[in-house]
Amino acid sequence: MPIVEAQDLSKQFRVADKQPGLAGTLRHVLRRRYREVEAVRKLSFSIEAGEMVGFLGPNGAGKTTTLKMLSGLIHPSGGHLAVAGCLPQRRQERFLQQITLVMGNRQQLIWDLPPMDSLRVNAAVYGIDPSEAKRRIHALGEMLELGEELHRPVRKLSLGQRMKAELLAALLHRPAVLFLDEPTLGLDVNAQVRVREFLADYNQRYGATVLLTSHYMGDITALCERVLLIHQGQLFHDGPLDALTTRLAPERQVRLELRDAYPAETFRNFGRLEELQERHVMLLIPREQLTERVAALLDRFDVVDLEVNDPPIEDLIGGLYTRAAEDSQADG
């Protein structure tokens, strides 16, 4: 059975409908009106034990709302939800022992105390024997390259050190399911790489299931073979990352370096001209016509170099986010 299963999951929020200006404020005080906002709509997916799955979507798409429902922090408005054989909204001890939620913009460590003090508190909360807690802290500390940092006040740690200490605190009870919401938020490139390496290592050692949301595509491409893309509260894609590329980009990039320069109209019948700089050309060609068009290009021109690529996944998903924002503004 899947360790995470959502079927027709939905969540609506009731929010005050206040108009701008003084008149709107007075009407809001005297006769308050509300409207329903649908954050998640009929969302269905399942995750097998041990999978590492990326969870993508623009701001406001419903990612964090979904993670909060999966971790039992908020109740779904409709649909069925099960995590590790439990109903998350009941927040049973058996469920809480098996999951963790890490949010890159939230912290659980006490600011003025060393992380070690917070770790001891967490161990006591989860009923972990002190000797076992010590072994786990040592093992996770080595994996995260944390040593003396565990004995310094949290406020004196760098952002990367704090994030690694937060991960250690969240994983001390060895949860089977990790819900990670922007775990590398604000970290520099080197710190991001170390966190990714740790998560991959943790998944391999303990067989943990990971659902990861991130705006850094490097996190997703490095860790996740499968991605869920949520768009306007609904599931847009569930499958391999390269299949998402095919879906979002029906064309492939063909870059050419030619022996001679040609005017733009010369390439009209070969594809959509994206770039022309003297002898350097970039065309977008439909995938199903790629072989035929490339053969025609090689036959027609004296080609010095040729390269065929998919458009960068960051650009594709960024374009989807931009369209979502434009649609939202148009609806408003």
Results as ranks from 00 to 15, higher is better:
E51Q: 15
R136M: 12
G79V: 03
L140R: 03
E93H: 00
K68N: 14
V53N: 11
L109M: 06
T65K: 07
A61H: 09
R136E: 15
G147F: 11
F55K: 05
L81C: 07
M103T: 14
L101D: 15
R106E: 15
H138T: 11
Q98T: 10
K134V: 01
A124F: 01
N59I: 10
E38D: 06
M143K: 04
L113Q: 14
L70P: 01
I137V: 12
G85I: 07
N59G: 12
G141D: 15
E149T: 09
E51D: 14
F45I: 04
G78C: 04
A123L: 01
G72T: 01
Y126S: 05
L144H: 11
A124G: 05
E93M: 06
R94P: 00
Q108K: 08
L146S: 11
N105M: 09
G78N: 07
A123G: 03
Q98E: 15
Q89M: 07
V40W: 05
K42H: 13
S46R: 10
Q89E: 13
K134F: 03
N105P: 01
T100G: 07
Q89I: 00
A82F: 00
Q108Y: 10
V53K: 10
Q97L: 04
L96F: 09
V121H: 11
D112P: 03
N122Q: 12
E93Y: 03
T66F: 10
A84P: 05
L73V: 07
M116A: 11
H80P: 00
M52D: 10
P130K: 01
L109I: 02
V121Q: 06
I99W: 13
V37S: 00
E145P: 01
H75S: 09
P115I: 07
G62W: 15
L73I: 04
L113T: 06
A61Q: 08
M116G: 03
V125I: 14
I137S: 10
M116Q: 11
G57I: 09
R90G: 02
S77F: 02
P114W: 10
G72V: 05
I74N: 02
I110A: 03
G78E: 09
G60D: 15
G72P: 03
R120C: 08
G60Y: 14
E149F: 04
A133L: 00
P76G: 03
K42A: 13
D117S: 10
A84T: 12
T64Y: 15
S131M: 02
L113H: 11
L96M: 03
A133P: 02
G50Q: 11
A133R: 03
V53M: 08
R94I: 04
V121R: 08
T100D: 13
I99V: 10
G62A: 12
E93Q: 06
C86L: 03
A84L: 06
G57A: 10
L113S: 07
G72S: 08
D117K: 07
A124W: 13
S118W: 11
H75F: 08
I110S: 05
D129S: 01
A139K: 05
L96P: 04
F55E: 12
M103K: 04
L70C: 06
A139L: 06
M143R: 12
M69S: 03
